[in-house]
Amino acid sequence: MGANRESPAWQQELAPLLKRIAYQRDSQALERLYALTSARLMGLMMRILHDEATSAEQLQELYLKVWYRADQYYQRGSPWGWLCAAARNLAIDRLRADPARHLNSRSIAPLEQIFETQHQGVPWLEQSVVRCLNGLQPKVRQLILLSYIGGYSHAELQTLTRAPLGSIKSRIRRGLRELKRCLE
């Protein structure tokens, strides 16, 4: 898949850009970072927030955070991972500030569909996380995906699945342990 082939190249640009933003207050670096990542991060936020205006608002907040806090990216790990985590956290906080809208506007089905369809024909992906997720029980996999991609809290998962809270927590924890064994 094209997006995956190009990802190492654009991702390699991110760390130097973050360094320029943190230490030189270089707005052109932020503009370049925005050009490389904004559509992907907007997609990520849309997957959690399901609202374009709110996602755009949080995206603006994210890049302002990057502008002021790029020094917190401390050259350890992946800058793309850092950006994704920051975007997810902002989106989740926004979502949890308005829980009623959250549960009314989201459904489970699209997540599973994306998972089921998009990995076909992507060998590197089939070898890693998707293959391992496929090895989990469907209900467990669904809970992990809803947490990670949809930003659902335990309480929201309980409402959606009508399963006991303790059972949800233990299923996720067991699923993550299995996932780790498979991945490593």
Partner: peptide
């Protein structure tokens, strides 16, 4: 863990944000 799961995030369809987002950021950082 972040590296393990990141490929899933990368599979989400990208969505270009409205142009006003960058315009606002540009004004604020300038």
């Amino acid at each position: 863990w972040s590296q393990h799961l990141l490929p899933l995030q990368e599979q989400l369809p990208p969505r270009p944000p409205p142009p006003q987002v960058w315009q606002s950021i540009d004004v604020l950082i300038n």
